[in-house]
Computed example of a mutant assay.
Amino acid sequence: MTTQPTPPNAQLNLRGAVDLGALAARSTRREEVARRAAADPGTAGPASPFVVDVTEETFADLVQGSVQVPLVLDLWAEGYDTGAEALQALAQEYAGAFLLGRIDAQAEPGLAQSLVQSLQARAIPLVAAIVKGQPIPLFTGSYPSAEEIRPVLEEVLRVAEANGVTGRVEGAGTAAGTQGEPEAPPVPPLHAEALAAVEAGDYDAATAAWTKALAQDPRDAGATEGLARVGVLRRVAGVDLSEARAAAAAAPDDVQAQILAADLDLVGGHVEDAFARLLGMVQRTAGEERDAVRTHLVDLFAVVGTSDPRVVTARQALTRALF
């Protein structure tokens, strides 16, 4: 059964999905696959540049690469992969517009469990996209037909383009029979450091890396966005969701309560609700309180991405509210 994708900023990112400080040893099954691949190159797995096998060791790098090229993850298990060929054929057809990463749930049980828990899935296969480090659940339980998958992938690519993710998998030009596009630039070291820190849940280290990147280049939009996202994650860490929402409902004019509720709205995927909550506060407040709300709302614009149509609409509403 397919479900329509939600915008990549709509959910918590996959921080903590893999313990970057304690990567597990290869499982017996993975070693057996490698042994058979060495004996018979025909069993070596995906030969396409657009399809890769994902392990705990490579997962973090692939997620970081989603800031340049959309990543589609296919979590599969032997006996439950009937129909996966359609997804791989589409990866070939799209010729590098996205990277398909296949995760063998039996060879990578820790990674599989973390992914299932992060996306609150109940069945395998599980297919999800990742854009700028943000997960987009696509479908679970069975593989739809190619014609059913195609519009879902189109929506993923539309969301990716709206968020500035327009790179292609290296080698796409030759596979498609056309002249290749310029290779996407590598992730800057400080960006990679910050993203890895977020994945590990070390928000202090992530903040330090993004801050250093901005000190080197104040025009670094990616660092500005990253710093804003880490700020949201830090503010909501350890917050009791029910208590925070109850406090906001009981005190609709309490600026700090509404700001925290807006952060929770955003992290929970309710982007428009977060913006509407703060826009209402802008209209009801004045002076320093209004400035605090306006500043926070602008910070959330950076979190979602300035090119996102919801940000464009909310920014126009903010201008009307202020003037």
Rank of each mutant, 00 (worst) to 15 (best):
R219L: 13
H270W: 04
R234Q: 13
E183Y: 00
V165H: 00
R102H: 11
Q4H: 10
E148S: 11
E161K: 15
A77E: 11
Q256F: 07
A128V: 04
F323L: 08
A314F: 08
Q316M: 08
P186G: 04
A89W: 01
A276V: 11
E225T: 14
V33L: 15
A128Q: 01
L195F: 14
Q4C: 02
V267M: 07
A38Q: 14
G180C: 02
I136Q: 15
S66H: 03
S307A: 15
L62P: 06
A274M: 09
V159E: 14
V312N: 03
S145F: 11
L214H: 07
F50A: 07
L12N: 10
M1Q: 10
D291R: 13
I124V: 13
A196R: 15
T140Q: 15
F98M: 06
A249S: 11
M281V: 05
A192N: 02
N163P: 01
A221R: 12
A286K: 12
G222Y: 04
R290D: 08
P182V: 06
Q216R: 12
R229Y: 04
P49T: 09
E225G: 10
L153G: 01
V303F: 10
A129I: 04
E272F: 09
Q179Y: 12
R284H: 10
I130D: 00
V304N: 02
Q258L: 04
A97C: 03
G287P: 07
V239A: 07
A107W: 07
N13L: 01
T82H: 13
Q316G: 05
A34D: 15
R30D: 10
E32T: 12
A44M: 06
G238E: 04
R294V: 15
R229I: 01
E32Y: 12
A60W: 10
L300A: 05
R315N: 15
I124F: 09
A292H: 03
E161F: 06
A228I: 09
L297E: 06
Q106N: 10
F59K: 02
F50I: 05
E148G: 09
R168L: 13
E181W: 13
R219N: 14
V303Y: 09
L264H: 02
E154Y: 01
Q256K: 13
V54E: 05
A60K: 08
A221L: 13
A47W: 01
V230C: 04
L300S: 03
E272Y: 09
T43P: 01
V267H: 06
Y143C: 00
G167Y: 07
T82W: 07
P151T: 03
P109W: 10
L126G: 04
E155D: 12
D104G: 07
P189L: 03
P70I: 07
A250H: 05
Y80R: 14
D40M: 02
A248M: 10
L62W: 09
A84P: 05
L115A: 05
T211C: 00
R229L: 02
G141F: 12
G280F: 09
L12E: 09
T166V: 15
A91Y: 07
G65S: 02
G42I: 07
P151C: 00
